[in-house]
Design a protein around this nucleic acid. Structure first.
Length: 496
RNA sequence: GCCCCUAUCGUCUAGCGGCUAGGACAGGAGAUUCUCAUUCUUCAAACCGGGGUUCGAUUCCCCGUGGGGGCACCA
């Protein structure tokens, strides 16, 4: 069965012909009860970035959508660049984003689960040897220069390759046909033997990838478009093993935003690392929502969706074919939308987590009830949790920064010093028990002078917060209490 | 250089032969609120070019061009 290089093995599940209606019939193929097995196979050689996260997400979504199995496989064959720290980061990031895996190493790094292990390539050497033997026995592999090569089938001829500046041996062969779930029919010529075991005895990526996918019975390979060109090699390997290749789905890549420059997003670009969002206390559901929207849409105008909704609506043929540029602004927007609708409890917990990690945090967390009160005021006003420190600093310390520009502006308008003096004088008679009583107090004062609430608001705010932004001034007064308000008003008055 | 993928506002996208080309983010202008943010209203903003096919192309085909990826004893 592997005598042929005529490549129609790539039709995978073998559904019908007619490629012109490919996207139509592919849709019908993804029925909910199928035995879908997908995998995410990162290598722990660097930080976990946006692109990897989205590849993982699309696999996870597809598994959950179809009721299939999501496998985590660790491609840790690169001894030099591997690290346990990066491995940990993969587990943590996936977990943080809510992508649970059915098979693979356990999230705590101890042991693994699933019937197709081991799930770390570093422990699968014996399997690779065994599969190499199959190829050798079938005459589909041979040794040359100390390495082992996969043998293509067909008539051989030599040609001078002017890119590599040397004569190479090519094989006359029909092109490989890939029936891609996202791209439709893709044809690619694979016409040279290639190395599958290096002379140092280690198998190369193409080989282990295919062997693992065969032995783990992976049904759908969902991966970045950068692998599309590799797919022809992989298909030939499947044929070499006498195995029908899985269904392929090559998803578009994430490119740099225009401000970042050209090309695909790399780990070095700002905003490229999942860890960064975790540290900034972004909401994982916002990030998942955003990532899902990069290259996919539900077919209508819906953008903000719960994970459950996305799982329900997601499907491979609906994935776009063109690359998408990363837009941090839109992600920030989504994060804000999610933040606004968090239950108070959840928001306070998030805030605690955040303050626990910043220098000024201890002071902020000293009084639980007071902290809660302030976070409740801040939640509807901020866009991300990491603004909280700057946004609420004046509640926790008398030594807060004063915005010079705001001060100049406020102090130049009307007669702020007189207003300050009047406020200080009126303070002792004011009732600070609720926002409404504070408001009534200021209004009474203003009316008595023939002025409005607004004539006192700006200067009072400057005095107690050092800026022109924040929750309502009445709430700030109440929470701060008369003593602190009085001393801050006086301080501003004295400062000129 | 060769191969593969791709192409609608600045960005993410809807559109699957006939539409005033829709939505969202970002940007502009207003409104509301004690400030700020939110919210609301509103404005500006796109079918890469050239050939076909068709009564009719953003849509289908071809060729350019642009963008992306791949061409290893890396993964």
């Amino acid at each position: 069965m592997w005598q042929t290089c005529l490549g129609s093995g790539a039709t995978g599940g073998g559904t019908g012909s007619g490629f012109d209606s490919a996207r139509g019939f592919l849709l019908a193929r993804t029925s909910p009860m199928s035995q879908v097995r997908v995998r995410f196979a990162p290598s722990p050689t660097g930080f976990f970035h946006i692109g990897s996260a989205r590849t993982a997400l699309f696999n996870w979504l597809y598994a959950r959508h179809t009721g299939g199995t999501f496998i985590l496989r660790i491609e840790d064959t690169d001894q030099a660049r591997n690290s346990e720290e990066f491995l940990r980061l993969i587990y943590d990031s996936l977990t943080w984003l809510g992508m649970d895996w059915d098979e693979g190493p356990n999230p705590n790094g101890v042991g693994e689960r699933g019937a197709f292990g081991p799930y770390r390539q570093s422990q699968r050497a014996h399997i690779y040897k065994e599969y190499l033997q199959k190829l050798l026995a079938a005459g589909r592999a041979y040794e040359k220069d100390g390495a082992i090569w996969f043998k293509m089938l067909g008539e051989r001829y030599k040609v001078f390759d002017d890119h590599r500046k040397k004569e190479v041996e090519k094989v006359k062969c029909d092109p490989v046909v890939i029936d891609d779930q996202i791209r439709g029919r893709v044809e690619r010529q694979e016409d040279e033997d290639f190395v599958i075991f290096r002379s140092d005895g280690n198998p190369v990526f193409h080989f282990v990838n295919v062997v693992d996918d065969i032995t783990m019975q992976v049904s759908h390979i969902i991966r970045g478009e950068d692998h599309l060109s590799n797919t022809s090699k992989h298909v030939r390997l499947y044929e070499g093993f006498g195995v029908t290749p899985p269904v392929f789905a090559h998803i578009p890549l994430i490119l740099k935003s225009p401000e970042m420059g050209q090309g695909k997003m790399s780990k070095r670009d700002k905003g490229a690392l999942i860890e960064e969002y975790q540290q900034r206390h972004f909401l994982p559901e916002a990030l998942v929502n955003y990532l899902a929207l990069l290259g996919w849409n539900p077919g209508d105008d819906r953008e903000k969706m719960t994970v459950a909704e996305i799982v329900q609506l997601f499907d491979l043929p609906a994935v776009n074919q063109s690359n998408a540029k990363f837009d941090g602004k839109k992600l920030a927007y989504l994060n804000m939308v999610y933040l606004l609708e968090q239950p108070t409890e959840k928001f306070v917990a998030l805030a605690k987590d955040y303050f626990a990690k910043i220098p000024a945090g201890a002071a902020a967390l000293a009084n639980e009830a007071y902290f809660r009160e302030i976070m409740t005021l801040a939640q509807p006003k901020i866009k991300s949790v990491d603004e909280l420190g700057a946004y609420t600093g004046y509640f926790f310390s008398d030594d807060f920064p004063v915005d010079a520009k705001v001060k100049d502006k406020v102090m130049a308008k009307g007669d702020p010093k007189t207003r300050l003096t009047e406020l200080i004088a009126a303070l002792s008679a004011m009732d600070f028990s609720t926002d409404a009583t504070v408001e009534a107090g200021i209004k009474t004062l203003a009316e008595g002078k023939g002025l409005g609430f607004g004539d006192y608001q700006a200067v009072a705010r400057l005095a107690v917060t050092g800026t022109n932004a924040g929750p309502s001034i009445t709430a700030i007064f109440r929470v701060l209490g008369k003593d602190r308000v009085a001393s801050r008003l006086q301080k501003l008055l004295a400062s000129g």
